[in-house]
């Protein structure tokens, strides 16, 4: 009987079993990244940078070279790799919301602002999963966590941070998009975003945020978690492509050779004496 593969586990995933809780969408995100790497045929040219958080062991599952970063520093580590290896390599970071939007805020903003040619995959599940469900920078107003037992008090700790919108104020990024892993349809869409980001990586900084679930941290069943995400997270974190080719960045400050203030600046134009 002739048959064709409708769906199969990609060979860029290792055979290891994920350590994630039942229903956690990290596994889906890992698989999408692996599928993109397989489709592009870049397994031998890809270097991943893993974060601190639930996905700290990402290198166990994605069968590519990996460097482990300190908490929040993945974009800096990726910068070091990117600026070192030949241009045909693909470098990505995989970071959660605590790692990227709290402790690593400086690193992500500046890597984006420099236009580092990397892809950042941002898993936003509005909670610290690995440490046991504490409040994250993306925790929704009123959302209960183990460190906001009465719900996030925005008067006390501010509103959640929208990373895509924040990065979209910068000139350099080439691709910024937010997707969701809350249904098969959105998962397929998310994969397209990841593919776009990897395709554009060699032109500049690319960023994909994936709204994700944490059934354990949220205290919900896996299916209720997906519904909760769509009902509560999507309105606050809209699924949009914020930046892509054709979508213009905010106007860049024009480059003025005259702005060189140092007499010994290389190739400083000598101004003709006037008066």
């Amino acid at each position: 009987m002739a048959e064709q593969v409708a769906f199969k586990r990609t060979s860029v995933l290792t055979d290891d079993y994920f350590h994630y809780c039942p229903g956690c969408t990290h596994g889906v995100a890992h698989r999408l990244v692996a599928e993109v790497i397989e489709e592009m045929g870049i397994q031998d040219r890809t270097i991943g940078v893993s974060p601190v958080g639930c996905s700290v062991l990402a290198y166990n599952y994605l069968d590519v070279d990996f460097v482990e970063a300190a908490h929040g520093r993945a974009p800096a580590v990726a910068t070091g790799i990117r600026r070192t290896l030949p241009e045909d390599r693909y470098v990505f970071t995989y970071q959660g919301d605590g790692d990227l939007a709290s402790i690593g805020m400086a690193e992500i903003i500046h890597a984006a602002n420099r236009g580092e040619k990397i892809t950042v995959i941002f898993i936003n599940n509005a909670i610290y999963g690995m440490t046991g469900g504490q409040m994250a920078p993306t925790t929704l107003p009123g959302m209960r966590t183990t460190t906001s037992p009465n719900g996030r008090d925005t008067g006390l700790c501010g509103h959640p941070i929208r990373m895509c919108e924040l990065l979209d104020t910068l000139v350099e990024p080439k691709f910024i998009a937010r997707g969701s892993l809350s249904s098969p349809k959105l998962i397929l869409k998310a994969k397209k975003l990841l593919r776009q980001a990897f395709d554009l990586q060699h032109s500049g900084f690319t960023f994909v945020e994936l709204l994700s679930t944490c059934p354990t941290g949220w205290g919900l069943t896996p299916d209720n978690s997906l519904a909760w995400l769509e009902r509560n997270m999507v309105p606050f974190f809209p699924m949009e492509v914020f930046r892509e080719p054709g979508k213009m960045p905010p106007q860049a400050t024009p480059y003025h050779p005259d702005l060189k203030v140092r007499d010994d600046a290389p190739k400083a134009e000598k101004k003709t004496e006037e008066g």
Partner: peptide
Amino acid sequence: VAAINMLCGAG
């Protein structure tokens, strides 16, 4: 902090 982690990547 970023500098040492860039060293980490390049190293």
